[in-house]
Amino acid sequence: MSLFPSVGRKQPRLRLAWTAVVFILWLGVFMHLVPFYIMISTSIKPAVEAMSMPPTLWPKEPTLVGWSLIWNISDIAKSLLAQPLSRYFLNSLVMTFGVILLSIPVTSLAAYASSKLIKGKVARPLFIFFIGTLMLPGIVTLIPSFLLTRNFPFPLPVPPNIPGTDIAFPTWRIWNTYWAVILPAGFSAGNFLLFKGFFDGIPDSIINAARVDGGSEFNIFRRIILPMSIPVYAVTTYFTFGGVWDSYLWPLVVIQDSKIAPLTLAIRRIADAFSYAGTTNTMTAIGASSSISPLIEQGLSWNGLMVLGLLQAIPVFIFFILAREYLLKGVRIQGLK
């Protein structure tokens, strides 16, 4: 692969352009790597140096105090959180895999139908309806969505009455349950587009051949289409995993009970304590909250914060490694078409 055709690249004008493009690309790479560098270098600084102004590029006295969190985080969590850390971890897993199990089949079947089964007049309006949710930023729908979880399926603070009676419609309160996170994520417009783009690339004749062979529509999907579509499933599953695992705002709005709160909420609480410990001087911190003092005593401030951030990122990173081959392949198939 090359940026420019190889012929004529030695011309000074092209050489200059080539250099400029490569420089801009490297700048982009550099800008992406800087935050990671700061996270990692800060994580091995001692507590005081992590907060020093101006910040040091490389720790003067590298220490693994921050990383000691890995084995004593549960002690810290005990003093700061209502539940053991493993509980939050489990909640996150339940929500993430709940969303994956619901949203990937729903979205992919919808995309398959939109791509291959629905023809004629309704096809286009339906497609626009499906991707319409992309047009609204999530923050705009935050409050209606919240209301929806209170009186599902009505986005109203109080459910309406059944016409002609004084009896309210029966509603299902999914607020403050796992469903509040899982159900609204049951369809993903972004994944829908990825799936549809992929399915559009599959020739109709393959499906017609399978029909003539006698396969039912669902059997064709399962036995013929699905094995061809592993890359796009890997990509969408990865995106869904990352999105739900890292989600913070929505669980914060709909989850009150600490028993079902995800890891992001718990880590946020610990992180708050760390940054508090980092920004105030030791004496006020001790005076302000007894729960923070163990952190200070252990030499934890923003260095611990960085370690927590890295720990939170690890599952997504592992998932990326697992799906890596398909991610690249999937992106490549999209690129070719």
Binding site: I206, A209, V212, P227
Partner: peptide, 21 residues
């Protein structure tokens, strides 16, 4: 009658073989 039940055999211009098999 659905194509599944008609019992025809069809050959396509682009072969339409099942690529995963």
């Amino acid at each position: 009658i659905t194509p599944q039940a008609r019992g025809v055999g069809m050959v396509f211009q682009d072969y339409a073989l099942y690529p995963s098999k």
